[in-house]
């Protein structure tokens, strides 16, 4: 299946790049730099130590908020999905908070927390955790009652049912939540950095000041590559760790 879609994928990318090139030549680099110009800017950016420092700053700060969001969000989501009381207490908050966009809370968080690690971590956490909570809750609620009953009929205790049925049933969905959550976290981090003009968001701000859009597009392409490779890596890990799910969904 991969063998069949790869040439088609490449064809699609080449076509799009061709269109982009034509449009860029027509509009000029101040409005739409061509892929060739963006590639040139990409080369310059990749040899700039300031770029790697900015990328590193963004990634490690984001990872802390992201990991905290998973560490809190997954258990909370499971608890909400499996326990009506927890659900009743947390769900209104989750439903309200999940619509919060990073841009809406960043100004407030800057005033409350400054602009250091706590601020970045908090923004990433707040934007990501509710997504994780809500998707894990849905998955936990959807765990097949029949399979839970199978375990009960074999005399499995509460703990055993949790360990042998609920956790493995949730595993693929937790991996999906982690993957999509990563994209949410990255977006929130970039937004936060743009407000305080630090790290990668600062680079994006500065590139926006240049009349040529080539450096801006190059930075956006790099961000896409980071996001796509991270999610591809996580998908690969998920497939290795949950082969039953992977081979079932491939069919």
């Amino acid at each position: 299946m991969i063998g069949r879609s790869l040439p088609v994928n490449i064809l699609g990318i080449v076509l799009l790049l061709g269109l982009w090139q034509l449009a860029g030549q027509h509009l000029g680099d101040a409005l739409l730099a061509t892929p060739v110009q963006a590639a040139g800017a990409l080369g310059t950016i990749l040899v700039d130590p300031a770029f790697w420092a900015a990328l590193w700053r963004m990634m490690w700060m984001m990872m802390i908020g992201y990991v905290l969001a998973l560490v809190v969000g997954v258990p909370l989501g499971i608890a909400m999905g499996r326990n009506a009381v927890v659900n009743a207490i947390v769900k209104p908050w989750a439903a309200m908070c999940i619509v919060i966009s990073a841009a809406a809370i960043v100004p407030l968080f800057i005033i409350l927390m400054g602009r250091g690690l706590v601020f970045s971590t908090a923004i990433v956490f707040v934007v990501t955790v509710w997504y994780v909570v809500v998707s894990v809750t849905e998955a936990a609620r959807a765990v097949s009652l029949r399979l839970v009953n199978v375990a009960r009929s074999f005399g499995a205790s509460d703990v055993q049912r949790f360990r042998y049925v609920i956790l493995p049933a949730l595993h693929p969905y937790v991996m999906i939540a982690a993957r999509v959550g990563f994209v949410h976290a990255l977006r929130a981090m970039v937004t936060a950095e743009m407000f305080i003009s630090a790290g990668y968001g600062g680079l994006l701000n500065d590139a926006g000041l240049d009349l040529s859009t080539a450096p801006l597009f190059a930075l956006i392409v790099i961000l896409m590559v980071v996001s796509v490779s991270a999610t591809a890596l996580m998908r690969w890990v998920a497939h290795r760790a949950a082969p039953w799910y992977a081979s079932r969904t491939r069919e």
Binding site: I110, I111, I196, S197, N205
Partner: peptide
């Protein structure tokens, strides 16, 4: 030094 995107902030 704390760069701030929104001027009023």
């Amino acid at each position: 030094v704390r760069p701030t995107k929104k001027i009023p902030q």
